[in-house]
Nucleic acid binder design. Structure first.
Lengths: 240, 240
DNA sequence: AAGTGGTCTAGACCACTAA
DNA sequence: TAGTGGTCTAGACCACTTC
């Protein structure tokens, strides 16, 4: 039984989908100023109020940034969007911390079964892998492995350097915006490799975060597994 | 410097605040059908569109539930509101799980320094404490200690039984609605007590969740510390 | 002064529920 | 059939930014 049939999509939703399509297709790029409401309304043949409702929805999804008197901009990976939407580790005393990254290994190989499942890849598909350590206040706190489909990131292996914020890289080099992500968190004992990278003893409890990041069209584009030391840091979140 | 000055509050925001006030004061109670938009608009002397915007905001905050053709209801702690807004532990295979609770101890005593800080209580204030184990699929998975100010929950100690969902109890018996909560999560080693309650060995990595729940007026009303076994379960969340 | 988004209004019509 | 929320429109005015 297929319950995916929308049956009826309100106009503002159709407008929203059409505008998201412009982001997916790359017609609108991060940081860009988009046309004013009244222009979009005329273009699409709907009222300004309907366009507004669509833009408000996209703003709520962190896809746009609106500034009174200036205009509406496509969100970039720096608009507070990524760095605190997708990075939630905080010092216990509340001091603001900036993560730095050190890439340890980069490889390209056939995807494992787990990677294929997470990324919805066919058998024999290949992935790029990045292993890195992230430091907070100079101290290694996160060890993570990132896997992305080779097919969606052609030439990633050839890049000489990787930036701290890979989601900004995905957007700028590959025109790919991460819209949302699903996380699974557990407490596990640090294995040998993790312990060595984090400078703790094997068996130390670490927070394991498995994240699948989804593109704007809903397809998985990145799978990462992180292990975090939480003796002096914690994962902060607000439930509402 | 006090930056709390609102300077200008739009009308729909004032309407929203006035209606939230009805929830705080208990004029509107969980499950109740509230007056239709046009009536509220006439009552408050604003347009129906402005009332709608206020009601939509409250719906987004999970305070109201709107049903086309029927009306707008005050959310209850069962409206999917609590059980999956505030309970995020899931089986790894994705099977739906229902938590059951077994209360182990209930005490009333002077608040510790940590409890006073979390609950913004004066020196010498007293708290009720509840210690319980929660089971998923029959297996003990969460050990937690809950602390609430005695002053806001008079007679809590005298209640013969405590329900599985304490937020529903807070609402029904004490007219207190939890609007949001802040969480801090860590990975720690299970201590003796936790290990005994969860049926694991001391030192096992467990997910520690420290939660402060806030009332609708923003004041802290509950502080809890939970320790979760995550060998067959995980804490699930969506980032967007 | 001109242009943008933000707020507020008034009213029409649609979709759903209940009696 | 009557009453509810849901959608859509058109237009007025306000607040902010830029020139």
């Amino acid at each position: 039984m297929d319950d995916a049939a929308p049956a009826f999509r309100p106009l503002y939703r159709q407008v929203r989908d059409a505008l998201v399509r412009r982001l997916i297709d790359g017609a609108w790029t991060p940081g860009m100023l988009i046309p004013p409401e009244h222009r979009l309304a005329a273009e699409l043949g709907v009222s300004q109020g309907t366009v507004r409702k669509a833009l408000d929805a996209m703003t709520a999804e962190n896809l746009l940034v609106r500034r009174q008197g200036r205009g509406t901009y496509v969100a970039t990976a720096e608009d507070g969007r990524i760095l605190f939407q997708f990075f939630c580790l905080t010092a216990d005393d509340g001091a603001p911390v900036f993560p730095e990254s050190e890439v340890l290994r980069r490889t390209t190989a056939r995807a494992t079964a787990r990677e294929r499942t997470a990324l919805a890849l066919p058998t024999a598909a290949r992935v790029h892998r990045i292993e890195r350590v992230r430091r907070l206040a100079g101290r290694p706190v996160i060890s993570e492995r990132i896997a992305v489909p080779e097919a969606r990131f052609p030439g990633l292996a050839a890049l000489p350097e990787l930036p701290n914020n890979v989601y900004a890289l995905y957007a700028e080099r590959f025109g790919l915006t991460v819209g949302r992500a699903a996380e699974r968190r557990k407490a596990v004992a640090a294995d040998e490799t993790t312990a060595a990278r984090l400078g703790c003893t094997p068996g130390t409890p670490v927070l394991e975060i498995e994240r699948t990041a989804l593109s704007l069209d809903g397809s998985p584009v990145e799978w990462r597994l992180s292990h975090c030391l939480t003796d002096a840091f914690h994962y902060a979140a607000e439930l509402r």
